[in-house]
Write a protein that binds this DNA or RNA. Structure first.
Lengths: 209, 209, 209, 209
DNA sequence: AATGAATGAGGCTTCATTCAT
DNA sequence: GATGAATGAAGCCTCATTCAT
């Protein structure tokens, strides 16, 4: 298991060619994860696809883990941004409406690059997240927890985790099975979320024949 | 990606020393998956932990994949048995009661060796399952689908997949977070399942403060 | 390089089941050499094709080399027998007629199982021949040398070696190229042999357009 | 049996350290073949003798086969060059004189590193030659065939193969037996070649006592 | 900074051979 | 005698990482 220092980028260049190489490496890694999965990801393949030498790759990252860790960091930040925006929209709405909005945002997030996000989640479990990423993850959870708490949900932290996990599970499975209609996935998932929250799934009930 | 012949055991000995080695190899592999994850699994580590030579390992399995494939086969068979029994018990009961029984069986299954079952699920996605295992998996799905169809659920196959996936997602997350009280997990999951199925989560609603 | 003791059979059983196993092993080895070449020859494949256990194989032979050594021994003995018979027939004939007879015998020998004899020749070069086999080989050479000496050929031992080698080379190449008409091969080879011996290739000259 | 891509070098470096490693690997392989034969040739032994790491070897060659294939390529190119030069010299001479010149060139070629060329010929039979090497081999054959056709030899392609094979056979055997005087070998071989071609071996006849 | 040649630990697999039953 | 399970040395190859230029 890689130590904390091995997942920090060596330097995060701010400009010029350096910056371009840095980004090229991350882009290459993301593409490989999306297209070939973790098995295809090696420092050599990343460098090659990025169009930089292996030496350059090591200038910016202390190792392979650091590259994936940065991808995790970014996708988490992206998720936080997406959900924050959804939270804005959800402010003041009913719990049911809020759930719908949050769910839609979450599904869109997973659907953007399903294989990539799947691989990154797998990787996340193996990696010791660095404090910054942990903080972002905690933020996401906290925001969601706060929302839930606002609606009087008991144990909002647990509920946040449960809802996140069950959504991920179902959405990934649906995408993996080849579904592409996000609205349909959401329509099936929403009643489960509402049920979890103790709300009558109501008129959207599509599961009874 | 391993071909079909790469995941069949080379010989499946029925008795004596031979049988003991075969089982020792599988046990060792399961332990490694449980404790160190797939990353720690190599033909060498398995043979060493099993207390057999690497040559012996290859007498029985054409490679690492075949070992994990056999573990998948077994855990799937076990799941089928567990769920079949639960189905027996659920026969004739109300949908809510049936859901409770099935859920309990499923959670017990995952909780038996959570890391192992998690790793095997991950591996399953990468492995071309052999026909026999596919058949078992299809049986499980079919049984669940039939149960759901019996209660008038629309698209029972999709519902079976959705419920399986969301349950797995939530249960794994809860176990991963260190929870050990399976009843509590079940109590939180059940309303989501009932909600998915269009039932009023009803009086068990523990999520509202 | 295997030592002398490793190429002697452990025991050469004279009767019964033992004898049958012993022969089955040799036959299996010969078939594998003929069909798959030396690369396909392993103690396990030989035992399997012979229908005996690997343990039994080692009862009769101290190792793989001993099996091939015995095949070499036998094919050499066969060659000696064939050539001796040809020598009988050649006795008293002209050098040209004698050459023709010897050549025909030699080509028939190689053609009987061309791949096998080819493989055994290759193996021969790697193996320290045991004294008995060496003696057989020496006999062949001596017989041929004596024949040549009888016709007044200078350095008959060298000539025997030269003629053997050039014949083998050409015959193997022709067979390898797919030729099956032994008479045609012989018709082309004979003038070379006669030329080597200082005889006018004469009326059989088929090589000038 | 190795596929076509398995016998192409991975990269053919043109200068510097890289080039030195590449050549060192080939030299080491040639030495091992010369001294210990194909049985002694392994990626490990080659790397060790070359003084490079196993990793470096695999930078340049995808496997053992690719190394030997390159050696075959080179020796064939060398042979083509040698024979082409001999053909120049033979232009316009009598068939007998031409044969002498070609034979001398061929013997010199084999004598340069007899064991190596022997091993490479053996290897050639097992390897699927790459198109480039095939082309070189075809060139050699074609040049020889053309020469023979020019003298009115029937079936020049067959004659080229026969003469090549019988020469190789005799020369290798003579070298293997320890002969070092190439002129003597040539003196014995020439009459056989002339005989094959239907020429009176003539006054050079040294084989009659 | 960038390059890419070099490294070698470590994973995979075969196969000749032994030995307890 | 016969069996076949077990062994492990030895070969194959990849890939993360270093370092001289």
């Amino acid at each position: 298991m890689p130590s904390a220092s091995q997942i920090q980028p060596r330097k995060t260049p701010r400009q010029g060619r350096s910056r371009a190489s840095y980004e090229a490496i991350l882009t290459a890694a993301a593409q490989i994860l999306e297209r070939q999965g973790a098995a295809g990801l090696s420092t050599n393949t990343v460098a090659e696809r990025a169009g930089v030498s292996i030496g350059t790759l090591y200038q910016y990252f202390p190792g392979k883990e650091a590259i994936t860790a940065e991808l995790v960091r970014r996708i988490k930040a992206q998720l936080l941004a997406d959900l924050s925006q959804a939270l804005e929209e959800a402010r003041g709405l009913s719990m049911r409406e809020a759930a719908e909005i949050m769910l839609a945002a979450s599904i869109r997030h997973h659907a953007r690059a399903p294989e990539l996000s799947r691989e990154l989640e797998r990787i996340e479990e193996l990696l010791p997240l660095d404090p910054e990423t942990e903080a972002v993850a905690a933020n996401i959870h906290a925001a969601l927890g706060a929302l839930l708490a606002g609606y009087g949900v008991a144990e909002p932290a647990v509920a946040a985790r449960d809802l996140t996990a069950l959504s991920k599970g179902m959405v990934h499975a649906a995408l993996f099975a080849g579904e592409t209609d996000l609205a349909r996935i959401e329509a099936r998932l929403l009643p489960a979320v509402l049920g979890y929250l103790g709300l009558d799934p109501g008129e959207r009930c599509a599961r009874r024949g």
